[in-house]
């Protein structure tokens, strides 16, 4: 079982997302996260799916995705050098000495404080899954009021690209 980041170029049409999500639920595939938005070409969407599975299951996932008529092209980013980013906003309890400590921790992780009240901060952080989870551990999960994560997006390094 290995984590895979699959990047999918698909027609920007209503229903395309549900074809993909329906495929995963119907065939019992795991989705860790899924993000999607239109690209610079408004007729196309770019989707990033993070999934965990054996090589055999992931091979099937890729074939089944390719079979969807709305899917134009896709690639398993984990097969190449790639960059992964996710954005997270965490609302944390921030009182007394804890406020200073949270500010310091945010700086160490190169985050930003977006909102401040007497008793809380909203902290923004960008990075890969490893970094975001590391931050949540570092600040102590007990202090977290809520955490919102975007899910991962990814892009290959170098000049390779997914084109229609």
């Amino acid at each position: 079982m290995r984590r895979h980041v699959i990047s999918v170029l698909l027609e920007n049409e209503s229903g395309a997302l549900s074809r993909v999500s329906g495929l995963f639920s119907a065939r019992g595939y795991n989705i860790e996260s899924l993000t999607v938005a239109a690209t610079h070409d408004p007729t196309l969407s770019r989707m990033t799916i993070v999934t965990i599975g054996t090589d055999r299951i992931v091979e099937q996932i890729i074939k089944q995705l390719n079979k969807l008529v709305d899917v134009v092209r896709l690639t398993d980013l984990t097969e190449v050098a790639f960059i992964e980013r996710e954005i997270m906003m965490v609302k944390v309890r921030a009182v007394d000495a804890g406020r200073e400590e949270l500010k310091r921790m945010t700086d160490i992780f190169r985050g930003q404080i977006l909102d401040v009240t007497d008793s809380s901060y909203v902290i923004e952080l960008t990075g890969d899954d490893y970094k975001l989870s590391g931050f949540l551990d570092a600040i102590g999960r007990d202090n977290i009021i809520e955490a919102v994560r975007s899910g991962a997006t990814g892009i290959a390094r170098g000049d390779k690209s997914l084109k229609p």
């Binding site: 055999r56 091979e59 099937q60 074939k63 089944q64 390719n66 079979k67």
Partner: peptide, 11 residues
Amino acid sequence: VDPASISKNVT
């Protein structure tokens, strides 16, 4: 004709 049929149940 369908790549998804290949190695789906049997490698």
